[in-house]
Design a protein around this nucleic acid. Structure first.
Length: 218
DNA sequence: CACCAGGCAAGTA
DNA sequence: TACTTGCATGGT
């Protein structure tokens, strides 16, 4: 199994090239993006981020000093804007209280301890926590998501009932412990997922078509 | 027009 | 524990 996952990665890498994720400059921008991206098309997130940038509030202080309803207006294109504005505020409060507003201090925490702390923040679930850990903090956690679920289940590598933790463990148990690999593998899965392995799959053109299981008639 | 996107929390049985 | 529902915009 170790081999087949890596083979999938290599196929994706050859097809799409190194993805160079996360598409953001600063750590806080990555965190903001991770929250805004929840159940939302990335294009919409980009619109929201660029609004925040233009308003010069794409920073810890910016978020802290901007009223929640103003933030909501700025991030409107990302959808669920009221909930997400509150989530940004809640994260800022968490960072302020737990780590004196320092991401540097936050990411110095041991991985599993920090993961638990992030999960205790309202609005941060497993995927958002792991995206923050891996992409903003370079912690060794594999990020799963809807596309990961689809790619794995459609290729019969995991059962339909597989939950987040199971998917994550499957990757962590079967590929080398390498931050750059974790980083780019997830990026590749999202890329192939968005293009070919979405709700209405286009397996004929998918670079992973050769990995599809043999169809059984019944 | 309907349906979906790089989730999560809260409510119900 | 295992479903269900609310949150909401912009693209196809």
């Amino acid at each position: 199994m170790k081999k087949s996952l890596l083979k999938i990665y290599k196929t994706l890498l050859k097809h799409f090239g190194y993805r160079n994720w996360w598409p953001a400059k600063t750590k806080i921008e990555i965190i903001i993006g991770a929250i805004l991206a929840q159940n939302t098309n990335w294009k919409n997130v980009e619109l929201a981020i660029s609004n925040l940038r233009e308003a010069k509030v794409l920073s810890y202080k910016g978020l802290q000093e901007t009223p929640v309803d103003q933030l909501a207006e700025l991030i409107r294109p990302s959808g669920y804007y009221n909930v997400k504005a509150q989530k940004l505020k809640t994260f800022v409060e968490f960072l302020s209280e737990e780590f004196s507003g320092s991401l540097m201090m936050m990411f110095r925490e041991e991985t599993s301890i920090l993961r638990d702390k992030l999960l205790s923040v309202k609005g941060i679930g497993p995927e958002t926590a792991d995206s923050i850990l891996l992409y903003a903090g370079q912690h060794l956690v594999f990020v799963s998501d809807l596309y990961t679920y689809r790619v794995m289940t459609r290729h019969k590598l995991l059962p339909e009932k597989a939950d987040y933790h199971q998917i994550q463990k499957f990757f962590q148990d079967n590929i080398p412990e390498d931050i750059d690999l974790y980083n780019d593998f997830h990026a590749q899965i999202v890329t192939v997922g968005a293009k070919y392995c979405n709700k209405t799959p286009k397996c004929e053109e998918c670079p992973l078509r050769e990995f599809l299981p043999i169809e059984q008639s019944e």
